[in-house]
Design a protein around this nucleic acid. Sequence first.
DNA 1: CTATGTTATGCGAACGTTCGCCCGAACGTT
DNA 2: AACGTTCGGGCGAACGTTCGCATAACATAG
Lengths: 337, 337
Amino acid sequence: MPLRVTIKDVAAQADVSYQTVSKVLNNQAQVSPETKARIWRAVKKLGYVPNHRARDLRTQRSHMLGYSWRPDLPHQVNPIMDLFLLSMVEAADEKGYHILPFPHPDPEKDVDAYRDLMRTGRVDGFILSSIDYNDPRIKFLQRENFPFVAFGGLQAESDLFVDVDGARGLELATRHLIAQGHKNIAVLAWPKHSRVGQNRFAGYVQAMRDAKLEMRAAWTAHVEGTFEMGYATTHKWLRAKTRPTAIVALTDLLAVGAMRAIQESGLRVGADIAVTGFDDTPMAQYLTPALTSVRQPIWQVGQRVIDLLVRSLEQLPLTETQIVLSPELIVRESSLK
Amino acid sequence: MPLRVTIKDVAAQADVSYQTVSKVLNNQAQVSPETKARIWRAVKKLGYVPNHRARDLRTQRSHMLGYSWRPDLPHQVNPIMDLFLLSMVEAADEKGYHILPFPHPDPEKDVDAYRDLMRTGRVDGFILSSIDYNDPRIKFLQRENFPFVAFGGLQAESDLFVDVDGARGLELATRHLIAQGHKNIAVLAWPKHSRVGQNRFAGYVQAMRDAKLEMRAAWTAHVEGTFEMGYATTHKWLRAKTRPTAIVALTDLLAVGAMRAIQESGLRVGADIAVTGFDDTPMAQYLTPALTSVRQPIWQVGQRVIDLLVRSLEQLPLTETQIVLSPELIVRESSLK
DNA sequence: CTATGTTATGCGAACGTTCGCCCGAACGTT
DNA sequence: AACGTTCGGGCGAACGTTCGCATAACATAG
């Protein structure tokens, strides 16, 4: 048995031309059941597996899907992206594809990395995440007419994307607090230039309006999503004359900052001031008290994204092209009296 | 300009045979400076990039490095692995390689996935992590003589690996507690079948012996590395007649469980009972009190692993083949009075 | 019995590279 | 003047597939 078993070895074994073997493997064209069986037997016997390099060259496809993610903080971890990646890897594997992760260089030059992977034939399509308003990558890929699917909402009708309804998430959290009897609810939001941030924020506004509750400008903070900003902002709120009885945060990190500030003021999180987060970071469940948080269906997002992308690559019918999934509120002690 | 610019287009433009272009691109063999320049000009003008698919077929290499990681818990996040992956992706990219992540199936069948990727020519080598004693993957790859590098120590002289000195890590943590005046130090360790666990545990033993402190069997727990086990074990310790004044844990999760148990007993973490963790999970810094933990140089591990693997693939000189890096103790409030 | 169609298989070519060998010209060297 | 050497570059082949067309064998119909 030769070191590398090729289609020709199989052909010799089965006593047919190697092209016929190829036909059987891709079961196209008619081949008599007997020879078919003979060929399969030979394949099994020799332990043949098709060489992907050769196939890819011939078919001009790579079965690779490029994915690049931006760490929120340099050399720090983005737990959401990790799970997302894992989900995509598994989904892709099932369909005979692989994920090719590549580094995310400085925001302006990043189109280069995409262009390179396209031109060299390394990937068949891309998965995009952390989309900005007017993301240059989107324009570029559209112009080049190269397949991609985004995690995050786009505008154009033609775009493929999967998104999580962030507004719905904050609405759930806010409604939950209102149901607990809270009226003075502050919000720790992101800077206004963030599309994801504005989307989530809208959910808070919606819930407050529906309940006819007052939204004070002083209790609406648009800040960077860090622990420090959550801490500092909450601290400020606690020193004011009237203070909120509940705080909804756009991320867990902001919520954790808020919790710390509350505890340092000698107040109890939950009993005195309720707090909710967003993302259901692994740590949320281990905090004291455990943090109520909005959990995104990241696993499903990964599955759907790959499904969409592979379908579009293989020209299969697309029943849905723009998928919006609902998040789920995980209620824990931090929002209960 | 044709849609796909190939080497032949460049050749036509530069008025040489396409094989000569290839030679220039891989700068091997003599070509006169003039034609060289002419060819490069043509390359630039046409925006040529070599087609990786074709090159890979011809050279029988894929420039892909397979990596599969096992989530500690199904559908849960392993923050260490995430950073590790990111580091490898960047290191590989610099050297013209890519990481190919693939799913980790059930432990017994996983060799199949490795075999498949090898046979189909998808990858040139593997990175292994989460190594067990007698890991079947290692035996398999050695038998097939396929290049790989492990994150985690192996035995054989010939093996390539990068490891973090877990014993040193626990030694640092234990010595730190001893320096704080602690004498009754309990340890939350892993089951004995874990090689990583035994390695770390040895560091605790070393530090205790050096300080001539007593190690009570009752204060040595070999348990699964979960929050629940940390919590339950610590609870048990606290109810005993004499209780430890400090607890070293083999993972942050165990430490967090211990912290919770301590706090629920009305004691103060740090002031009353000191606690240290391992891994410096992102959450460690946000806990109340913040958790003292051993930080592994994950970024460096990723860089070194890729360096080793690429060197061995390209038959470059290997100065070191078995690299052990030292972790670092990050002291926070949980271990201070 | 020829014409026509169907079915099963074979064959040449191509995908875009790299590799090794060959060859002609220029240049010294006996 | 004849002979090596070196340099620059060309040429055919190969990597392992898939694709489209050609063709042989056989059956069916006129």
